[in-house]
Design a protein around this nucleic acid. Structure first.
Lengths: 278, 278
DNA sequence: GCCTATTGTCCTGTAAAACGAAACTCTACT
DNA sequence: AGTAGAGTTTCGTTTTACAGGACAATAGGC
């Protein structure tokens, strides 16, 4: 495409745009966006990427892709991988530390979460929503379990499954929650996953009344979760605290007691947030 | 609508470049670089920044700065802070998780580090060098100390002070280590900090022979460290493992025994790295 | 040994994208 | 009401980033 012949049609107004089907480029800062897009090409299964592959996925010439790559590498967002290609650089870890601090959550939350983790002997998560995704901001693990639910900081979770996601949605304005769910494709992770928007909305109303959420096997068949909201000074829900446990370890009769503890912990974190004036 | 008539002065031909003294812009991808530079404006004391401030520091018009900010916000590298301004977004934490995985270190290192932390009852760090900086990639803390050395993933350390930095430099080609030290301004953190390149180079040679480094009060007056190198398949030093402890807790007579344990742990991590074929 | 494929680098003229300026909205403060 | 600051939008201009192609170095296939 875009033949370089100097005799072509009188300057066809073909915009640069990504060739791979990204719907609406041409808006905003396309150059800056492409640099950022390179950072988004990395996934759990694609930890190293070559310059040629970047050019292809960006739909630009190789020389152009390498210009981007050099920008990213010279600010250490990327580094050259041993054996060719590029991988994410340490700068990413540096600013992630600052990101975590920005939310003003972890410093107050972690002690309370650790206490809860030891009390109930399960993994405790602190999550926040960003767009159509839930991200694990912090976690505390109990030491004495052979089988552990393993998440990490930065792990992402879907919007339609898992106790945390439901809490984060439940305290959003109804129409916003509905809009979010409708604009996301609700993947079915297990037979128990809810994928119908109306059913989900009813669930959210129920959670709002109860003050917490419980899910069983909706994201992973063997896992259950109990989550409660964390609020800031303005009473806005800014995060969720949750227990993630092997479903078989938690009998339904025990849920209420665990829920009480999760809510207490969430309240404690909220209180500290307000006390300092997040 | 109907924006003002284009009547301004004939627009002097001033090159764009950063106005704040950044020596050589105009090279590479200045647009992409500026977007990345915005991400670098955040520090521990500057967790939120306004659009106007970004425009000023970038040396561009406000409308231009906001275009960048929108690019960064729509890919969730930034988010609007409650009460105005922008802060780092959750996307940063997402890709930081991938960055950590890229190095193939943590998954093998953490178990060994945790064991060491419990054994010696001190904080254990895993660090890597990036340019003129050392970054903490992972850490393990001992649970039973009232006074703890507190680092986090993503914390940065200088090149001329601290046991880890010296190890990371010691196994670099001599001329590269010298070049790095000469191009960095070696800050004096305490009276014990080494700031002379030749003295440092001699120190590095000593460390190379010993196989580990010990520092006392060179970065923080109350802290001491012992570090050893982690090697990959090609025997390249790719990281350092270190103990960071209150100096008053570790008597000089105990250093040798601790050093032995740190070296063992570093070796164990190296072995696993090779076994898997990092 | 020769061939091909792949990675990364550099250069140049041209076309497209990013730029500054200014008008405008909104909220908060006084 | 009036000021100050944040954030948004539009527009014509020109600066910047683009594609294409030539180049070096490395790694495998035969």
């Amino acid at each position: 495409m875009t033949p370089g012949a100097p005799d072509g049609p009188p300057r066809a107004k073909v915009s640069r745009m990504s060739g791979t089907g990204s719907p609406s480029y041409r808006e905003r800062n396309s150059t800056a966006d492409r640099a950022l897009d390179i950072l988004l090409m990395f996934t759990d299964t694609q930890l190293v990427i070559s310059g040629t592959a970047v050019a292809e996925r960006l739909g630009v010439a190789r020389s152009t892709a390498y210009r981007y790559l050099q920008s990213l590498a010279s600010s250490r967002f990327l580094e050259e991988a041993p054996g060719g290609g590029f991988r994410l650089g340490l700068r990413v870890m540096e600013i992630a530390r600052l990101a975590r601090r920005s939310y003003g959550l972890s410093e107050f939350a972690l002690p309370a979460m650790t206490a809860l983790a030891e009390d109930v002997n399960e993994t405790i998560l602190l999550t926040r929503r960003t767009g159509e995704l839930v991200v694990c901001v912090d976690l505390a693990e109990a030491g004495t379990r052979a089988v552990r639910i393993s998440y990490e900081r930065g792990s992402t979770l879907p919007l339609n499954a898992g106790a945390s996601a439901l809490v984060l949605l439940a305290w959003l304005p109804e129409e916003e929650a509905r809009r979010l769910l409708q604009s996301t494709d609700l993947h079915r992770f297990t037979p128990a996953t809810l994928t119908d928007v109306d059913t989900l909305m009813k669930r959210l109303a129920h959670i709002r009344r109860a003050g917490y959420s419980v899910t069983r096997g909706e994201l992973d068949p063997d896992v259950m979760g109990i989550a409660a909201p964390v609020r800031d000074e303005q009473k806005q829900v800014v995060a969720a605290v949750s227990i993630a446990a092997l479903a078989s370890r938690v009998f339904p009769e025990a849920e209420a007691e665990l829920a009480r503890k999760v809510r207490e912990t969430a309240q404690e974190i909220s209180d500290r947030l307000v006390a300092v004036g997040g």
